[in-house]
Structures are given as C-alpha cells and as structure tokens.
C-alpha cells in the first residue's frame, strides 16, 4: 500500500484521461479556443482605450476552465465502472479524491494563467501604454485560488452525483445563490420605498433577513476565491473571508472523501 497522500500515477492518469478522451477533448479544445478568442476580442476591440490589460473577471475565466475539466471528474468514473477496477488495487480512497482534486486544480490554473498571459499580450499589443501591474499579479493569484476552491466544489458535487451531473448541480447552485443575493440587495427597494406593494413589503420583511444571512456563505461556495484587493483597497484584511475560503475547500474535500468511503463500487453493485 502506498502511503503518499497524492498518488503520482493517478495524477498522470487524470491528465492523460483529458488528453485522450474522444468526447471531452474536442469540447475542451473548442471551449478553450472560445475563451481565448473572447479574451483577445475583449481587450483588442473596445470602444475606448483600456486602462488595464485584464478585461475579463476572475469568475468568467476560472469557472469555465474548471467546468471544462471538472465535469464528471469523479461521477464519470463511478458511472463507467472505472472505480471498480481502480479500487481493486490498494489505493486509499482519500488519496484518489485528493489526487483528482489536485490534478483538476493544477490543470485549470494552468489554463487560466495562459489565458491571462494571452490577455496581457493582446492588451499590450493593442494599447502599448498598458503594462502588467500589481492588479495583474492579484488577478493571477485570485484566478488560481478560484481554480483550487472551485475544483473542491466540483469534486464534492461529483462524488455525490453520478456521471456529469455535477456541472448542472453547480450551475443550479450558482443560480439559486445569485437569486438569494439579488433578493438581499433589494432591501431598500422592497422595504423602504413607496414603490413596493404592501404584500411585497410584508414578504420582504420575512425573506430579506434570511437572504442577507445566506448570501455570503452561499457565494463563498459557488464562487470561492481569495480576494487580494484588500492589499490595495481595504483597511484591514478580512480573516473571516480567508478562513471561509480554506474552510469551504477543506470541508468540500472531506465530504467528498466521506461519500467515496461509503460508496459501494464493487462489480456486484452494478
């Protein structure tokens, strides 16, 4: 039995899986080409000169990269029966989960950083005055942190749900969390404006406080990343935000491991 937490052979195998999968590879390549095209067009063809080369947000670059690679990252293996073969070998299940997470995080981070580099080059080519600055460095770290955080979320959903349903689950989760955030932000309009109706006000009094409490925790699971802008813009670092990020990440992995430990993956289960 190998005692290392990360299984190197499994790490390599995960990367190979992406490289040679006849279904996923074209989707990934096309999706990534779209992202590259979008990045170049966003930076190069703008109505006014840009002030910084980074035109895309952390979410819109990191999330698609993770989604492209992380769809069905564990669920596909369960559904296709690969796990039955894999777990016949003396591999610890937590090692499997952590290795898959690390492979997904590293691969998506690499794609994200290449995208950032392309954006920077396109931005500098279109507007020579625009050079990478401190914000660019923050962007790079934030993107990597989102890749690692979101990979954990994808791993958790994928361990619970079969096949590639983890992507749908995450999209629904994002949508619901966004709706809750939007409702929380409607407080001035719903509760304190003469615009809203009496029914809306009564409903708002009940719903808005709940949404306000749920907004931050849900967002930190749906879009987990470490916000580094406090280095430039905030009076104090919010340790709550930092601990929330790492806590969600580790908790997601722990849940995934517990689920995998309890999963029946023998041939008899099929």
């Amino acid at each position: 039995m190998k005692d290392s937490v990360i299984n190197k052979a499994l790490f390599k195998a995960t990367i190979e899986e992406w490289r040679y999968n006849p279904v996923f590879l074209p989707i990934m390549v096309l999706g990534y080409l779209y992202l590259i095209g979008f990045a170049i067009i966003s930076v190069s063809f703008v109505s006014a000169p840009i002030h910084e080369a980074t035109f895309s947000s952390v979410f819109y670059t990191a999330a698609p990269c993770v989604a492209l690679l992380g769809t069905g990252i564990i669920g596909q293996n369960v559904s296709s029966g690969i796990l039955s073969v894999l777990f016949a070998r003396p591999i610890r299940r937590y090692s499997y989960v952590l290795t898959r997470w690390l492979a997904l995080s590293v691969a998506s981070s690499t794609l994200c950083l290449i995208l950032l580099l392309i954006e920077q080059v396109a931005g500098m080519a279109a507007f020579p005055g625009v050079v990478p600055d401190f914000n660019t460095l923050c962007q790079a770290v934030e993107r990597v942190s989102m890749c690692f955080g979101l990979s954990a979320t994808f791993i958790m959903f994928s361990s619970v749900l079969p096949s590639a349903i983890n992507l749908s689950a995450w999209i629904v989760f994002c949508f619901v969390s966004n709706i809750i955030v939007e409702i929380a932000h409607m407080e001035p309009y719903l509760l304190h404006s003469s615009y809203g109706s009496e029914l809306g006000r009564k409903l708002g009094e009940f719903v808005i406080p709940i949404c306000k409490e749920m907004a931050l925790p849900l967002q930190s699971i749906a879009f987990p990343y470490i916000d580094l802008s406090f280095l430039a813009h905030t009076a104090s670092i919010s340790w709550f935000a930092v601990f929330t990020y790492f806590s969600n990440l580790s908790l997601s992995l722990l849940i995934a491991i517990i689920v995998m430990n309890r999963k029946e993956v023998s041939y008899a289960s099929k």
Binding site: Y94, W239, F240, F243, S247, S250, L251, L254, N261
Partner: peptide
Amino acid sequence: IATEMLPSSLVAVVIILLLARTGTGIYE
C-alpha cells in the same frame, strides 16, 4: 478497511478552520 479511512490530519484541519471561521466571523 484501510483503504476507506479518513485522513485524520484533514479532519483536524477542517475542525480548526471551522473554529477560526466562526471566531473571526463573530468578531467581524
């Protein structure tokens, strides 16, 4: 059974982070 164990270090990290998160959350 050994292949299905929980890594105790991860469990400890999760507990510590949850406590730290709760504490800083209340303070902030």
